[in-house]
Amino acid sequence: MIEKKKRNIFQIIDDWASARSLWLLMYCTGCGAIELPPTMTSRYDMERFGIAPAGTPRQADILLITGYLSIKTLKRVIRAYEQMQSPKYVIGLGSCTINGGMYWDSYNTIKMLDLYLPVDIWIAGCMPRPESVIGGLNKLSDIIKAGEANGWKKYNENLKWYRANQKKVIKKWDLPEFNY
């Protein structure tokens, strides 16, 4: 695991900027998608914390996975994650990403997202309400500000382990190796 290092002033500024400006790439599967529009629009307005939706993975900071991932969609998520630019963070939204949730005995969904991608923060619930989504995002912001959200470093360092896990579930592995 990565130990907490002492940061210099530039790194502190970096982290502060990253924490105050979070661009979301929303990977919406199933029921999770419906909670995000109210989060973005007038009622809850996540933009007041500097959180905005991003157009493509290249521009995004956060990969927000809202619910169960089937084996087929996992492939896309991995590719989207690897196209994002560091520092990048993953949020698991809803119980399905934590332990399978109501799909705990499904034959074609993955149960623990943590095995395949480095999740920085979980937001539990089925489904979590916009309040808790924003709460989770703010929590992530605090972690980043403290310089402790190092999921992307973990992924780079333990790429072999993650790849092995990913290849274990995705039988027909045809992802190009050029991603990383």
Binding site: S18, R20, S21, T41, S42, G50, Q85
Partner: peptide
Amino acid sequence: QLRYGPPVYQNYIDILKLWTKKTN
């Protein structure tokens, strides 16, 4: 749109963040 909206200096932070991204 009846929202609170980001702070007016939000775009400075955005640009700073983009410049300090670790990989390109």
